[in-house]
Amino acid sequence: MDRVLARAALGAVLVLAAPALAEPRADYFSRLAAAVRSGLEEAVVARAPRLVPPTPIKVTWKAVRVGSLDLGAPLVALTAGDLDRDGKSELYAVTSREVIAFALDQRKIKELGRVAFGGDRAALSPREVIGTAVVDGSELVAGVSSWAKELRVGWQGKVLVAQPGGAGFLQCPGERAALSPGRNHFGDPLAPVHGVRCRDDLFDAEGHPLRVRAALAGTRLAITVARCSVAGACEPAGTYEYKDYGVAFELADLDRNGTPELIVSGAGAPGDPDAIKVIGLGGEDKKGLFRHRFNGGVAGLAVLDSDGDGAMELVAAVRLVGATRVDLWRFN
């Protein structure tokens, strides 16, 4: 390792120094620079992490009602992540007032902590509360339309803590948006965007990292997939479009077969029948891989590894319209 780096450093110096040297010795230095460059490339290839294809697992789509929770305010966003670094993902529920962290056990749910939004109220907010929740590194960034600023939530030991974030809404890491003034969507009123999800922790069947982004415009879901090399360079690998789906949706690879899945809710009006459906990207979407109906509306979807066994589980938060109580259902 040290020898390779020393050769590379020397090579770099020589390459940089080469133009200043006299012409007769240029051939030598050119050859030297080429040799160093080649050596460096070999070193990179030799040290590149090997592609590890995901190992398919069998998903049991059995629906289990984990619990019923009164959040004290309507749920506006749901996500999951292992922010406390204990090897198990926590579930984060964002209401119009708070961010609440939960741990999911086999058949029960335990509240880990909650932090409240604060500061100035939003000057102009939509008639219904809109929210986002994005895991960004070791923090959860939560935004709610009733408050002017986001909340950055993390853990200090075993205590859930928060500090004010920026204005606007983080939709994906590095991607921010503002609500259309007074309306329940992002972007222009003529091209409304109701939500965005991004995943960069999925892999294709060969083990290449994938970057997947789904955006809901009206009831149309547009999904882009980019396949990345081990060096980090990404190239488009597919675009997909699905119609007539609701605001609760998520991306995952629950069966770990290298084809990401899109998990969607219904596009009916509040009060209409609702369901979730799992669709393999590029596959048949009418029936999907799995479908489950609920006696309530799907207010949020999240994918997490609640027990640290490496298998991801799908969680759906279901409620009657506007209710503060949600039922949590787990699949797999």
Binding site: E128, G246, A269, D272, P273, D274, V298, V321
Partner: peptide, 13 residues
Amino acid sequence: CTTLVHAESRPRY
């Protein structure tokens, strides 16, 4: 009874 359920899509303008 089982179809008296509620979706969660957003109202349109």
